[in-house]
């Protein structure tokens, strides 16, 4: 296994060796960088944008992300990132993040902020009301059926379907696998069959 830049920093006891090696300006920059992230908690993540799956190290301090950079140990990206991956910090540190759920009542002209508990309660009631009113126990399908004379004929028959056709779901290719699994489990338990996501478009 080769020595990555981070291993190199560990091996060299932080910045001392780097400082003794190189050009003045670079060593000063490296030193300053070390200081800024010195007390930060490091976690690894994978870029949330395209599907290459590049590795990113996230540096957090006091509950805030203070730096992100390419993970040099990652075998695909080897520390490199594109413009999107390099800016991933702005997803977390962003004043356009919403603060609270937003709600817009029928006919209203503006959003209003609401509490999570209220919004989720209201959605749960809407799901139940819609499902209860529209639940289809049986539905008609056309199927080939063997006749007495041995021939097959296309006939209409009723079958059990146990579904609702009044609620649809689309998304989500940006969720974690575990969340995708949970999401399909949830919406199918409600009886949804109109279930689609980004892979279809």
């Amino acid at each position: 296994m080769g020595v990555s830049r981070r291993d190199f920093l560990k091996l060299s006891g932080g910045t001392a060796l780097i400082a003794s090696l190189g050009v003045n300006l670079d060593s000063a920059k490296a030193y300053a960088r070390e200081l800024r992230i010195k007390n930060a908690k490091q976690t690894t993540t994978i870029c949330p944008y395209c599907s290459v799956g590049c590795g990113i190290i996230v540096y957090a301090e006091n509950g805030k992300i203070i730096n992100t950079e390419g993970d040099p140990d990652h075998p695909i990206s080897e520390g490199t990132l594109c413009s999107k991956g390099a800016s991933v910090m702005q997803l977390a540190n962003n004043d356009k993040r919403l603060g609270k759920p937003l709600y817009r009542a029928p006919g209203e002209t503006a959003w209003k902020q609401v509490e999570w508990e209220w919004a989720l309660d209201r959605i749960a009631h809407l799901v139940k009301d819609t499902r209860d009113k529209s639940f289809k126990t049986v539905s008609t399908s056309k199927v080939m059926e063997k006749q007495a004379d041995g021939t097959e004929l296309l006939v209409e028959k009723e079958f059990v379907v146990n579904r609702t056709d009044k609620i649809a779901h689309v998304g989500s290719a940006a969720l974690d696998n575990e969340e995708c699994y949970l999401l399909q489990k949830l919406v199918r338990s409600w009886g949804l069959v109109y279930v689609e996501h980004q892979a279809r478009i």
Partner: peptide
């Protein structure tokens, strides 16, 4: 998308 492979593997499709 970062997980369109996974979300397809997990059957979020009709």
């Amino acid at each position: 998308e970062s997980n369109v492979q996974g979300s397809t593997d997990y059957g979020i499709l009709f």
